[in-house]
Each structure stands twice: as C-alpha cells, then as structure tokens.
Amino acid sequence: MLSFVAPMTVYLFVTAPPPLPEASAEGGKRLTASEVLEICAGENSAVRELYTKEIVGAGQKVGLRFDEQWEQLKVDAGPLPALFLRRTSKSLAQSSVRLGLFLGSDNPVNESNRFSGPQADAFREMLRDAEPRSFFMNDVKLYTAMYPDFAVAAACVDCHNEHPDSPKRDWKLGELMGATTWTFPSNSVPVSETLEVLAALRNGFRDAYAEYIEKTKTFSSPPEIGKKWPRQCYCLPAPETFMQEAERRSSKPTLDRLLSRR
C-alpha cells in the first residue's frame, strides 16, 4: 500500500504542475452580485434609451418601421426595443458568462412577458418607490435583481398606448412601465470577471444591433448605413458607430460605479 501511496503523493503534490486556478483564489477588490448587476443595468439603460430614442423614435419619423414580426423575411422592419433586449439576452446566453437578462411588466403587450410569483411581488413594491429589488433564487442558485424600466421616449408611450394587445392605454412619459430582471451565479466577483461580464453585455448589444442592420439589407428600400443617424436622413448608423455612441454614454457612469466600490 505504501509503495503505491508514496509515489502517488510525490507524483501529485511534490513534483506536481501548477494547480488549476479557481476564481475565488483571485485577490484584490471584489464586487457583490448586486453591484455587478447594478453596473449592467446602468449600461443597459443607456443603450436602451439610445436605441429607443435615436433609432426607433427618430427612425419612425423618416419612414423606418419597427415590428414584432421583424424577423420575418417579407417584413421590412426592425426590432422593437423589447425585442432588441431579448436579442441581447440571447447573445448573453451564448456567451461564456452566466449573466441573465429578462424584461417584463405587469401590463405587457405580450402576455408571455407578464410578471408572476416573486417578480410580481417585487414589482408591486417597486411601483411604490421605483427602487431596485433583489432576491436569491434557491432552485437555480442565482442572485437576482430587478431594475425599474421607465418610459424614456415618446416612442415607448405611443406604441404601448396604440398597440391592440396592450392591456393599458394611458401610459405617460416617465412612467414606470416594467422592469429588467438580471441574474448572476456568484456573490463575490473579482474585478476581472466583472469586466468580462461587461464585455459580454456590450457584445450582446452589438450582436442585437448588427442583426437589425443585416436585416435592413433585405428591405425593398434599404436605408443608408454609415455614420449618419435617422435624425439626419433615411439612414442608420453602422454597428461600430452605434456602439461608439452607446459606449460614450455608458462608460463614464460604469467607471464611476466601479471606482466607488472600494
């Protein structure tokens, strides 16, 4: 027995290669799940407002269409803001980070986005003070946070008030319309991992927008794609232009949030 254990001990521990790293071994500053999700929610708010105001809102004025069936081949339209978020969420699911993103409401246009269970409870509380809510999902071991989603543009209010399936027709600008729900598996996140999460999130925004631009190539009257925005013409910014503006708007708040976690 000793003749087996002794060589194995030497083989595994004395002459062993460097041990496999584990995330928790990383030193330095760490963030809680709520802090990581707050930063992500801030990034999302900035991009969501940019897309809703400058692409959807301004685009509709120059003849661009946005539709629930936008992915269908013969529909010359782009994704509505909720579907833009859903596409971002899909990209996150395919990335190596385990960040989850969902959108819901107590008065959704699409019934499949109606809150129930703990989300409905949290949203009822959120309606009172418009503050984020967080809880832990025990069955899937995910830290969860919900952030308020406001009507930031006329396009939000107009579309939801006019949509035939909308259960509420008196939305007002600035009103709390719903909430984004975010999930993450760890409550002690090194800064390096936080940056990976942010990179994956920004990739998700880029993927969602690039997919829309790709779809415009099939339109019967494709808009010009380049550096101009719909405010200026029947055109759309290229993905890199869109992301440059998104990053310009979100980077400072994100950096401020990261630096404040000391």
């Binding site: 992915e71 996150l92 989850g100 269970g117 703990p118 409905a120 809880f135 069955d139 899937v140 729900t181």
Partner: peptide
C-alpha cells in the same frame, strides 16, 4: 444556435418559471 427560437432555454432561468423548472 437560432436567433428566433420561440422557447430559448435560457429564458426559463427567469424567476417566474420556477414551477416549470421543478
């Protein structure tokens, strides 16, 4: 990988699907 999956599995990680997950 399907961009337009009607039931992408990651969506079921949302809290409100806890009964379905069980």
């Amino acid at each position: 990988e399907r961009p337009f999956d009607r039931h992408p599995v990651h969506r079921f990680n949302e809290p409100r699907f806890s009964d379905a997950r069980k």
